[in-house]
Design a protein around this nucleic acid. Sequence first.
DNA 1: ATGAAAGCGCTAACAG
DNA 2: CTGTTAGCGCTTTCAT
Lengths: 337, 337
Amino acid sequence: MNISELAQHLGVAVSTVSRVLSGNAEKYRISEQTVRRVQEAAEKFQVVPDPLGAGLRRGKLGMIGLLVPDITNPFFSTMARAIELRFRETGIAVQLCDSAEDTDTELLLLTKLLSRRLDGLILAPVGKVSDGLKKAISDSSMPIVLLDRLLPGIDAPSVSLDNRKAGALAAAHLLDAGHRRLGCLRGDPGAVSDRERIEGVQEVLRERGFESDDLVIAGEGYTREESLAGAEKLLSASDRPDAIISLSGQGVLGVLEVSRRLGLSIPSDFSLLAFDEQPWSALMQPPLTTIAQPIEAMAEKAAALLNVTLKDPKSVGQQESAVFEASLCERESVAKK
Amino acid sequence: MNISELAQHLGVAVSTVSRVLSGNAEKYRISEQTVRRVQEAAEKFQVVPDPLGAGLRRGKLGMIGLLVPDITNPFFSTMARAIELRFRETGIAVQLCDSAEDTDTELLLLTKLLSRRLDGLILAPVGKVSDGLKKAISDSSMPIVLLDRLLPGIDAPSVSLDNRKAGALAAAHLLDAGHRRLGCLRGDPGAVSDRERIEGVQEVLRERGFESDDLVIAGEGYTREESLAGAEKLLSASDRPDAIISLSGQGVLGVLEVSRRLGLSIPSDFSLLAFDEQPWSALMQPPLTTIAQPIEAMAEKAAALLNVTLKDPKSVGQQESAVFEASLCERESVAKK
DNA sequence: ATGAAAGCGCTAACAG
DNA sequence: CTGTTAGCGCTTTCAT
């Protein structure tokens, strides 16, 4: 049953029912009696205004999109949950999509999302900027907030980590512990966030007078499978680094797998420092030293940024971007030399 | 720009544009020339038929809902990804919701999903049946497929594991290895799936002539936090079981944490067998012996079942339910005595 | 304090 | 082969 049928049943006008059911009874000074009558009947017959009709009329759906690169990664699933929670409080639904770290899929999904009349979009991109991606975003008038991995050349409010500083934090910790040769397992050579993290590492290295070949970099791809090759390269080299930094949350799985296959032990054969705190980080043998990101805070900030634009469409693009700080979770996978 | 503006611009009727753009040009025998003209213009001006208008008119949105209890759990996130992939191929979007293992949230989200005019819903429930849940589902005319944890008394096609057999598989493996006292860490005392798994365990125990107090059961709640208390109870008892079965994927995190806190080692102090294969299962020390579910196959079956109803609405409720078999992944967390 | 009516963007039945 | 038109369910202006 829809609201016009309900109106007919009650002998009132659709508009009256609409006003009551969308919480505008006060505004239109509907009599208390009518309000009650409508509400009771709506309750009884389980009538809720159809969001499709309302959306069409209002030009707003009450739904935003969230596109993440890997819902299987606890970093993003935790984020997704936090974002959904925030928006649920505002009465806004979240449509979640997962590009599975694939740029083609990402563009496809993005295009679909953009054409779906959503009120807004939070995009946690795979990280590579293509012309298609750039065009799709700039051609669209939908409010967008960028999350986590940033996209250079795309003008939108964003929420991210101070990656350079996080990289420096990691490198400093390792160097302080007496390590000299560092290895970085990166997600994607093209991604800015990884590049910034590496720059942070290099900066510290330079400051402390190390040579540039004291840093080995490998890896292409954020998934566990893709990280295997990079880990292999790092760990089976004759001049294996003293310490490995896994720049991506899933990458550490590859390092651990290869390390085991090679019969290496941590931290005696090499130290390991992993970006992103995972539910199982502390349960590994040895417990993993990690660089943790303030996931919840970042998610809330992203939601808040989008909400501003949602409420005041004129403010598009006038918003600051938020940068968060990583913190070190010291455990036992980094040896002190 | 919408299709009527495009039509005006082109000097043709909206219906023509609609027919071309929704792939019905053939059916209506639109001239090749017109088709091309429309397509080119649509391309140029980035015009796509608004799904809202189309949905309203058709009475279908081209979108289904997926409600899972914990998107943070790799079991469900992998499932979500597989389901989304299947439906994307059909041109159907998936709206994902996460109840965070909370029944109130679940009911709230379900109600919202049900009122959203979706074409269908895949529900992986928290597992407790409430009157509200039952009523919400039976009052709705939306095609629903149940996934994973089942809901007794609710009549819908479903996809699940043969939990009894899986429990038996676990118990037999442990007993074969020479263990006598078994402990089960369950997710929820009220959930059927857990109950069935426990029944499977008990069945084997009985067959082999064990007493009923050779089995200790503890735990209430599927999250890692909630599993801590149950694990504590199991592991710190004076007559600690020889072997623990974690009935839920996240529960094993609790067991590992408590085990470490208590200074116990696996498998010398107790053996551990965990339901659900996780990305890190093989990387633990010792590598975890697990009971794996055929996640992808289950996801595809759920999608297939829903698709049948979507295509032929008359077939609602006439569908069989699918039951899958678990398999044992033997590793080193179970000692042979 | 309430009703009537227009119109959001689309598709499909009907008409030619 | 293409155009005209009625409505899908809703909100909102205008009218009373």
